[in-house]
Design a protein around this nucleic acid. Sequence first.
DNA 1: ATACTATATGCGGAAATGTGCATATAATCA
DNA 2: TGATTATATGCACATTTCCGCATATAGTAT
Lengths: 116, 116
Amino acid sequence: MRNLVKAFRALSCETRIRILKVLLERECCVCEIMQALDISQSRASRNLGILEDAGFIKSRREGLWIVYSIDEQTMNKYAASLAEMLRGSLANGEIIYQDRERLSHAVRIGPRAIHK
Amino acid sequence: MRNLVKAFRALSCETRIRILKVLLERECCVCEIMQALDISQSRASRNLGILEDAGFIKSRREGLWIVYSIDEQTMNKYAASLAEMLRGSLANGEIIYQDRERLSHAVRIGPRAIHK
DNA sequence: ATACTATATGCGGAAATGTGCATATAATCA
DNA sequence: TGATTATATGCACATTTCCGCATATAGTAT
């Protein structure tokens, strides 16, 4: 029950749904999430933390960046189900589309390659 | 997106998950929900209202009672998916078990039959 | 070493949430 | 009619949430 409530709570906020939709497309560092959603750094970081705590995503350090990605082996089976459900949802959502657009732009010109 | 967030928000609270699990067993009036979960009347009523607003359940008057039940033809397709997911979840949850126990007791001795 | 970059986090404030208590509403009963 | 029962709702309050701002931390570059 704990896990279930936590999973639902994590998705009860539009920002986090948008983040998860982006990460379902592609793993990202924080600054890519910021650019994709056009939000502040602390906002991105905190919401990523909440999604991670709920078991939706995991993070690894890669040089200067922290890369977030879907946690396929999550301990929270509810998170797994819900992420899978989200995969097929909001296919024609305007915001989601814009996020994807901004993401590909960020990736194209991104600072990502500089330090690799 | 609106509907999606609303559906998740509705389930981001243990009380409402418990209510939904009870209603997945059996349609109930408010006083049966109160007894099943052992909560106050206003608490039951308000949380039922939130679930109804999110598209999970519907209500009809039946004499003196308002009977709540799963809304099978809900406009919110996300609510439908999530309710279906919940149907198979928490099968061995302690609280859910107790709620079910209290519910059957309430139904057995319930005032439900008086006015029918 | 210093400077720089990416990320996390403490703090404060505005808003939203969940609840109990009391009261309003509505249907039924006598 | 008035009394009773079931439910909804206004109000107040404590708690939580979400965010921005500023700062701390950690890795990298020079």
